[in-house]
Amino acid sequence: MPESVPVRCPSCRRERRYTAPAYACACGAAVVPPLDPAAVPTAVTHRVWDEQWVSLRCMACGRAGQWPQPELGCPCGTLVRIPVARDGTGPWDEVVAAARLLHRLGHRDVRRAGRRPPGGVALMATGLLAHVTAGGRPAALRDVEILWLAAMARSARCVHFSGAGYTADARARADGLAVPLFALTAATPPRPLNDAAHAFLGPAADWD
């Protein structure tokens, strides 16, 4: 299930938890608006058509579409608009490429996690946590360790994607922790970089 975030009403200051709904893409996969827990919710004072929709891309097929803006009705009578996370760290297509690979490997519930790792985007599915490091810098030792620790806390497997490669100590640490590492570009499928990544792919390594 999608993670929930705490939402404080800007009018009465009462806090409630909100879970974004899942919408069905034409391909059959679920599209879930990625909530931004760091942004401040706002009260809806009047309706503007363009503000009632957000542009989201399906993690499974890459199709872009318009979906309802997340909103929550407070008991005080205020309608609260909940901010949706934006990338701002690198090509969104790279995140979609990572999500499509995970979907192809059988993780049908891939979605953006509510909390973002430093300098990247977090994806999650049942029993799996993935980080995509963007922004044009190589993934560092700390990126690998943060992912591994976060996955251990969830009793989940983990996998890392990077659009700008990895530092030498990051690759060494990943090998020691058996964290799969993938090189990522928007134009080509993710490429496995270590033994753990080849094992993660399994029979998919031979797919066209």
Rank of each mutant, 00 (worst) to 15 (best):
T126A: 12
T89N: 00
W92K: 01
P75E: 05
A122V: 08
T126D: 14
V121Q: 06
S55K: 11
P75S: 01
C58V: 07
T126M: 06
G106V: 05
M124A: 15
L102P: 00
P117I: 01
P117G: 02
S55Q: 10
W92P: 06
E94F: 10
A97M: 11
L101N: 09
L79H: 07
P118M: 05
G114D: 00
Q69R: 05
A97K: 15
G77H: 02
C74L: 00
V95P: 02
M59D: 10
P83G: 07
T78V: 05
A97N: 09
R111H: 12
A125E: 08
P117K: 05
G62E: 05
R104T: 05
R116A: 02
D87E: 15
A99I: 04
R115I: 03
A98W: 03
L105S: 05
P68H: 05
G73K: 12
G119C: 07
R100V: 09
R100K: 11
P68W: 04
G120I: 09
D87P: 11
G77M: 02
A122F: 10
V121F: 02
L105F: 01
P91D: 12
P118K: 12
G106H: 08
V96H: 02
G62F: 10
P70A: 06
G119K: 01
A60W: 06
G114F: 02
W67T: 09
V84Y: 14
G119M: 08
W92D: 12
M124V: 13
V110P: 09
L105Y: 03
P75Q: 02
L123P: 13
R86F: 14
M59S: 04
R81T: 10
A125C: 09
R86K: 14
